[in-house]
Design a protein around this nucleic acid. Structure first.
Lengths: 253, 253
DNA sequence: ACTTATTTGTTCGTATGTATG
DNA sequence: TCATACATACGAACAAATAAG
């Protein structure tokens, strides 16, 4: 009944694996100089072109979709992906939600990463940041203060501030990685009840100090300001950890 | 086993989508406190427990496999993954091989990232690095010099040096990210003929200067040494870019 | 508003390759 | 060698989303 397709005449030892299909799709994109957003052949065409079954092609496409190398739209087609770091965000988020021994390790590490990136770029930020950028940073701080007074959620502004701080470097990887760390923090922190609205006033002042250091083009002041900026976040994490430890002790006794 | 997966008492209106299957597998891992390497239910059990077909479960598992959240071993079973940054490596590698406008942008950015990380951690590296670590660093430089004299490939030693430099921070994300950037560089650079064996002698001296600065616990010297260390890499990339531009001009005329 | 064609999403049945005992 | 359990792979059929006429 089933016409078993042996085709083993001179074929490779293994017919075709999922991984090979994925590799050949990537090669197709590279060789044809496709750009993010460009349309790829349909599943049926890929099956015929690669000599693989639809199931194998689909599984291969799904792995590429998870890496944002391709983007699949139902009823539409398959396109070249945006090459974002969405996979990193999902992976780190899962790690943060998983870790059973120390739930707060990942959060501390994320704060570390952002601080290290900004302190490590200090000199280059001061060299490349121009007047209009600094003005934009200052406006964001003003907006943050006003929003805070009105009881609004200022995390979005905070995020834009740091993205703008890193942006003039024109380094896509650093910008996206920093942004990814922010995403993960925003997802994981609420689950561990780290987010509080207390010391956001301190945060505004910390941002002001950063802007002042940038305007003065003072590397040492910038370094100190950035360090001071991340201190409250570390304190919140430590406080949440202690709360958690106490709750666990009560629960265990 | 089957019942423990179900988190919904009532059946969902739509049967089940691939994405939902993936989310529920992740929840299963988190809720059951599984650790990397632990065995997951087989495909058949997942199908029954989640009420999904084999294909849907397989495609969902493949997306999680791409993120290293699970790890599938043929004929063995499906296990919780190592949560590495393999997805980031694959994504960045593809981006580096793709970029048509400026092939060398990604390489420059990768060098930037590594330099920014090490310079940003300068103070903390000096604070936490102990005598035995410094000795190990020095031995690696000696080994590098000896290997270079024997005409061996010292890139592995170079890699270990920087991993050791970052290691005492005990920050998994930074260590893995730095390592991932190194991986990508090692894959992409040969494709663009950036790797040369010329100025490896300079590299050895640059490493010696870094070690000396660490031993002296001198932040400023450390900063200068790290910057000097990455300078040859930037020069190689710029040289390769010029070569490429000339070749393109000849080809186009 | 309706139909039709195209494309991806989902499911089932079957056969094959791989590792364990 | 055989049996078992697992993932891998193929192919066919139908459902759902989208676009164009």
């Amino acid at each position: 009944m089933a016409e078993t397709i042996r085709t083993k005449g001179t074929a490779s030892p293994r017919p075709l694996r999922r991984h090979e299909v994925a590799e050949r799709i990537k090669r197709y994109i590279i060789d044809n100089r496709l750009r993010p957003g460009d349309l790829l052949p349909s599943e049926g065409e890929l099956c015929e072109a690669l000599g693989a079954s639809r199931s194998s092609v689909r599984e291969a496409v799904k792995t590429l979709d998870a890496l944002d190398i391709v983007e699949v739209r139902h009823g539409h087609g398959t396109y070249v992906g945006r090459l974002s770091m969405s996979a990193l965000v999902e992976g780190l988020t899962f790690r943060g939600l998983l870790s059973p021994d120390d739930d707060f390790k990942v959060l501390e590490e994320l704060v570390d990463v952002r601080e290290v990136l900004e302190r490590g770029m200090a000199q280059r930020i001061l060299d490349t940041l121009h007047a209009d950028h600094i003005t934009a940073l200052e406006e964001l701080v003003d907006e943050m203060e006003a929003g805070l007074a009105a009881g609004q959620d200022v995390i979005g502004i905070d995020r834009r501030f740091h993205a703008l701080l890193v942006e003039p470097l024109r380094n896509e990887i650093i910008s996206q990685f920093s942004s990814a760390c922010w995403d993960v923090y925003g997802i994981v922190a609420p689950h561990l009840h780290v987010i509080t609205k207390q010391d956001e006033l301190d945060t505004v002042n910390a941002h002001r100090a950063v802007v002042a250091a940038v305007r003065a083009a003072d590397p040492l002041a910038f370094d100190r300001a950035v360090e001071a900026h991340y201190r409250p976040a570390r304190r919140r994490i430590a406080a949440a950890r202690e709360r958690n430890a106490k709750a666990a002790a009560q629960n265990g006794s």
